[in-house]
C-alpha cells in the first residue's frame, strides 16, 4: 500500500485484479484511504485494458500460474513484487521522500 501511495496523483491509473471478491477489493482500498480507478476479478483483466487508455499496462502479482498467465493473456506486462519495487517510479519517489 505504501508503494501505491507513492504514485497516487502521478498519472497512474490504479486498481486491483484479484480472486478476492470485488466488494472485498473495494473495502481494502477504502480502508487504506487510497483512491482507485478499478477493481476486477483476476480473469477479467482484459476489460481494464479495454476501458482505460494508458501508455503501458502493468500487473504486479505473485503467482506464475494465475497472475502471470492472466496478465500476459490480457496484454499486460507482468512484474513480480521485487521487480515492481525496483521500478524507477517507485525508486525515485522513495529517495525523494527519504
Amino acid at each position: 500500500m505504501d508503494m501505491v501511495r507513492m504514485v497516487v496523483g502521478d498519472g497512474f491509473l490504479i486498481g486491483s485484479c484479484s480472486d478476492r471478491p470485488m466488494s472485498a477489493q473495494r473495502a481494502i482500498w477504502e480502508a487504506h484511504d487510497i483512491p482507485y480507478d478499478f477493481v476486477i476479478p483476476k480473469h477479467m483483466l482484459a476489460d481494464v485494458k479495454a476501458k482505460f487508455e494508458a501508455d503501458r499496462y502493468f500487473h504486479v502479482g505473485d503467482r506464475e500460474d494465475l497472475d502471470k498467465k492472466y496478465a500476459l493473456e490480457a496484454g499486460f506486462e507482468f512484474l513480480w513484487p521485487d521487480e515492481a519495487a525496483a521500478m524507477p517510479w517507485f525508486a525515485t519517489k522513495d529517495s525523494s521522500d527519504a
Binding site: P21, M22, S23, M44
Partner: peptide, 14 residues
C-alpha cells in the same frame, strides 16, 4: 477475512 460475498462477487468469479 470478514468479507461479505455479494451477488456481483459471485456472478463475476472465474
Amino acid at each position: 477475512r470478514p468479507e461479505e460475498l455479494t451477488a456481483e462477487d459471485y456472478e463475476y468469479a472465474r
